[in-house]
């Protein structure tokens, strides 16, 4: 029996971040470290409609949400992604996590216009996992490095300053050499002030098969949370909407216990007990999914 004092229960302090798993588990790529095993054929979560998202956006205003995050799968497989971001920018800042391989100039121009009309920022987070095809493509798939770089160039060309996110598939000690490799590669591609964020891997989904899962000891306990800054944990200030309802965080959408409610206000009220191995990664690395570059937190659904 775990007593109340040793239960790692986390209550939401304020709903700062509202996430949308806008294209479910559908992605044009099949990366071998994807923690929700997205692929062109994984339909276990569906697409959210623009109307559903508009409803949540409206509801979120009452709750005082600070920022909106879009992930998948690959968000730009959604036929109305541009419109969804335009809707969002009318009420707050938006961040979209993309693999940048399907971006069209015309969409980006529209989005740049929407941003300049809005008081709010639109951030792109682009996942690239190595600074050349030799390191990136074995993880993300044949030809994906070249395609992603083309996407980054389009973004930079339309005036966006994408945050390049790389999942740390190397040793922590190699961080600084990987970082400088990324910097010089991006500068060479014409991105003069690149923003880069390194993320630890989450041993879930496809990544579990790649590197092995969590051991039973890798769990967060109540004691560990004493004197710990809980605001480091996404579940302390975020929730995510999928076609199944509202879940505690973007990482655990496949765990039945993480589905809190159908309704945002109720899901915001419900505390959550950290019972998963992934919670252990959050605990260790903190600040996950935030936009600040080169921090060291795990990614959300990494697109």
């Amino acid at each position: 029996m775990t007593s109340e004092s040793t239960t790692a229960r986390v209550t939401l302090s304020h709903l700062d971040e509202l996430w949308f798993q806008v294209t479910g588990t559908r992605c044009n790529l099949t990366c071998n470290h994807c923690f929700i095993s997205c692929s062109p054929h994984n339909n276990s979560f569906g697409f959210l409609s623009r109307t559903e998202i508009q409803k949540s956006l409206e509801e979120s205003r009452q709750l005082g949400v600070k920022g909106y995050y879009f992930t998948g799968g690959e968000p730009f497989l959604h036929p109305e992604m541009v419109e969804i971001l335009e809707d969002t920018l009318k009420i707050g800042p938006a961040t979209v996590l993309t693999n940048a391989t399907v971006l069209k100039d015309e969409w980006l121009q529209r989005l740049q216009q929407a941003q300049s009309k809005s008081r709010y920022s639109l951030e792109f987070r682009v996942s690239i996992d190595g600074f050349d095809a030799e390191t990136n493509d074995p993880i993300r798939g044949e030809g994906t490095f070249a395609r992603a770089i083309r996407g980054v160039k389009k973004l930079v060309h339309t005036g966006f300053l994408p945050i390049i996110t790389a999942t740390r598939t190397w040793k922590d000690s190699e961080d600084s050499s990987m970082l400088s490799g990324f910097l010089s590669m991006l500068k060479q591609q014409g991105y003069s002030q690149p923003r880069i964020k390194l993320l630890p891997t989450l041993k879930l989904g496809a990544e579990q098969n790649r590197s092995g899962g969590y051991t039973d000891q890798q769990r967060v306990t109540g004691e560990m949370l004493q004197d710990y800054d809980r605001s480091q944990l996404v579940c302390e200030h975020s929730r995510i909407v999928t076609t199944r309802g509202v879940h505690v965080c973007p990482i655990l959408i496949e765990s039945p216990d993480a589905l809190l409610s159908n309704d945002l206000a109720t899901a915001a009220q419900k505390p959550y007990t950290l019972g998963h191995g992934a919670c252990f990664t959050c605990y260790q690395y903190g600040a996950i999914c935030s936009n600040i570059s080169t921090g060291s937190g795990p990614s959300g659904a990494s697109a």
């Binding site: 304020h14 600070k66 707050g92 800042p93 008081r119 709010y120 920022s121």
Partner: peptide, 20 residues
């Protein structure tokens, strides 16, 4: 008002958030 070192930038602070 809730956190001494919170960054409130113009482009990332929704008006409905301030209303809280």
């Amino acid at each position: 008002p809730r956190k001494t070192n919170e960054f409130l930038w113009e482009s990332t602070t929704p008006l409905h958030f301030l209303d809280i």
